Simulated scan of single mutants.
Amino acid sequence: MVTTPETQKNNPANVSLGKTNVTGYAYWAPKGTALPSDASTALAEAYVGLGYIGEDGITNASDSETTDVKEMGGENVLSIITSYSETYQFVLIEAMRKSAAQIRYGEQNVTGEDGALSITHTMPDDTEFVLVVELALTGGKKDRFVIPRAVRKEFGDRTLSGTEVLGYDVTLGALPSDLINGGTSREYIGTATAAAGGE
């Protein structure tokens, strides 16, 4: 049967909510760690979970700039996208988790073990690392984002009080990577496999 716009029906099975993933939402690993190439394959042992994330979830934001070319009468005749960037922002609420503190302050600035940490507050380093973000979807499927070159970018304020959860508000930048054909991140939904030309 030939598929045409008229025969393509809406499918409620393609609609999903992001749900709790029991094993975690975000993981990091040293730069160069093998990247997953689908939504379901288990991550390599080098990946470390970052613990619970605050109720506002994970914000994946992108920003682009465009240059418009006008002709002498003032009409736009060409529009060119000149830059593009992408970030992932979330609040790590397991403040006593070593991996969460390391994402905020840098790996070398956090010592100890979960529940008993020593953290040096100083300028964070710009070491790149691999970030994987996951959500469980309706129907037992998974939405997985792979960021081969994640870097620390911005940090939110910490409120120290008896009514606010103690956590780390971090924004991580996603840099272009040749491992995913120059993309900043690659998303695998359900059982999607790697796109041609990249791992």
Rank of each mutant, 00 (worst) to 15 (best):
L172E: 08
Q108M: 08
G167C: 07
V110L: 07
G140V: 13
V151D: 01
E134N: 04
A174M: 10
K141L: 09
V133A: 10
A150Y: 01
T159L: 11
L166F: 13
V170W: 13
E75D: 14
P124T: 05
L175V: 01
T171S: 05
L117I: 10
D157K: 12
Q108T: 15
V133T: 10
V132G: 00
P148V: 11
V91G: 07
S99C: 04
L160S: 10
T127A: 13
A116V: 11
F129C: 00
A101D: 06
T87P: 09
P124W: 00
F129M: 04
S118P: 04
G106D: 07
L172V: 10
L131M: 09
S85K: 10
T111N: 04
T87W: 10
Y168Q: 09
V132N: 07
V133M: 13
L172G: 03
V132P: 04
M96Q: 13
D126S: 08
F155W: 11
A100Y: 06
Y84F: 15
L135G: 01
L78R: 14
V91T: 14
I103E: 02
A136V: 00
L166K: 05
M96H: 09
E94D: 14
S99F: 05
M96R: 14
M72D: 13
A101K: 01
T87A: 10
R97H: 05
H121D: 14
E94I: 14
R144W: 02
Y88I: 14
R158H: 07
T87M: 14
A136S: 11
R152K: 11
G139C: 03
L166E: 14
S118H: 06
P124S: 06
T82F: 08
I103Y: 02
Y88F: 15
M96T: 14
K141R: 03
L175Y: 13
R152N: 06
S85Q: 11
L137Y: 04
S118W: 02
G156A: 08
A150V: 02
K153A: 12
F155Y: 08
Y84K: 15
E71M: 02
R152V: 01
F145D: 03
L78Y: 12
S99W: 11
L131E: 00
P176R: 14
G140R: 04
Q102T: 11
